[in-house]
């Protein structure tokens, strides 16, 4: 082999290794973001001129909620968790775990004595979240909901709280509307991947609804932010006149949405807000008061100034099954507020 051939061979090896490393980097990132179950939109062959639905099934959704809703008192978190559990039971072909409106009282009672986080719980506890809260929420906080969904579904079914803050995906703050679009895209990835409804906190954290789908012009698993046109949700307050809401993306991000239960702000407020985005004046849904997510002077926010939802995932290795853990919207396990 001549000198030139040897040089060419070495360069070839270096280039092939570089190409492999590039692909491995991308695939690693994708795997970190995307659970293993792949799904297709209802109408994958549709033209890009029509938004496609990504999410859960109508009949299964109705079956999951029809016997257990509406909520009584501030039990929206419990009721949406029960609905997610029932839906998963249907997916697995087992009997529904929850079958009565009184089950919300049973779950609330169970929450008084079991299900505390590894970091404990703040006192005093309330009659709904009990020891499952890590904050002094008046109802159930996102950790409590993640715990309930994990606890009441069959083994090896994992749920975690996901949090979007613009810092997770941007070097500078995009417009509020773009933040909502990015967060909704991340949430939609859970819907498109699992085809199961998820629990989303709305109205500044005051309320939880069951998000069952989104419409998007492009696939939210590969587009960021996706061209989402609407969000479909079911309200545990419901069973009065209206059962399903398909809110346009402008309504989802802009609020002022009149419902049978009052004017909803939806995601026009961050978690923890009361009247305007970023005001942080919602005293009913405070930040964690125990554990590693309790805000510190250097890291003063956890749920606040962001959006949050609880979804199924595949995060179970190395102890990550624990519903105590929160994840960023980009799929990273959070080890600090």
């Amino acid at each position: 082999m001549t000198h030139a051939q040897r040089v060419a061979l070495r360069i070839s090896v270096v280039l092939l290794v570089a190409a492999g490393a590039l692909l491995a980097t991308v695939w690693h990132g994708a795997i970190g973001l995307t659970p293993t179950v792949q799904a297709v939109p209802n109408n994958p062959g549709a033209s890009t001129g029509a938004g496609n639905f990504y999410g859960a099934d109508t009949t299964m959704t109705i079956n999951a909620i029809k016997s257990i809703w509406p909520q009584v008192g501030p039990s929206c978190g419990i009721e949406t968790a029960e609905a997610a559990v029932n839906y998963n039971d249907e997916v697995r072909g087992v009997g529904l775990r929850f079958r009565s409106t009184t089950d919300q009282k049973v779950v609330a009672r169970n929450n008084q004595t079991s299900g505390a986080s590894q970091w404990g719980y703040p006192t005093p506890i309330n009659a709904y979240g009990g020891v499952t809260n890590i904050s002094r929420d008046v109802g159930t906080d996102p950790r409590s909901i993640a715990y309930m969904e994990w606890n009441y579904t069959p083994s090896n079914t994992f749920y975690h709280d996901y949090i979007y803050r613009w810092q997770f995906a941007n070097s500078s703050a995009p417009s509020f509307y773009t933040q909502v679009l990015q967060a909704t895209t991340s949430m939609a990835r859970g819907l498109a991947t699992w085809h199961e409804p998820l629990t989303s906190q709305i109205n500044g954290g005051l309320h939880s609804v069951l998000v069952t789908g989104v419409y998007s012009y492009n696939d939210p698993r590969s587009a960021y932010p996706a061209q989402i046109t609407s969000v479909v949700y079911r309200d545990p307050m419901a069973y009065y006149t209206v059962s399903r809401f398909e809110a346009s993306i402008g309504t989802w991000a802009g609020g002022h949405f009149s419902t049978p239960y009052g004017v909803y702000s939806l995601w026009s407020l961050y978690y923890g807000d009361r009247a305007s985005a970023g005001d942080g004046k919602n005293t009913s849904d405070p930040e964690p008061a125990v554990g590693i997510y309790k805000p510190t002077p250097s890291q003063p926010i956890h749920w606040y100034r962001g959006f949050t939802w609880i979804q199924r995932d595949n995060n179970w290795a190395n102890g990550t099954w624990n519903p105590d853990w929160a994840y960023t919207s980009t799929g990273a396990k959070m080890t600090a507020p």
């Binding site: 991308v26 997770f168 995906a169 509307y177 012009y217 960021y224 061209q227 980009t330």
Partner: peptide
């Protein structure tokens, strides 16, 4: 890599923004 990075934001990295949104406010 270029194509995929635009679609999948990695933690800590700046995400490229889609320019195809139907409206800037919904």
């Amino acid at each position: 890599t270029t194509t995929t990075s635009a679609a999948l934001p990695l933690a800590g990295a700046a995400a490229k923004q889609s320019t195809q949104s139907p409206s800037t406010t919904g």
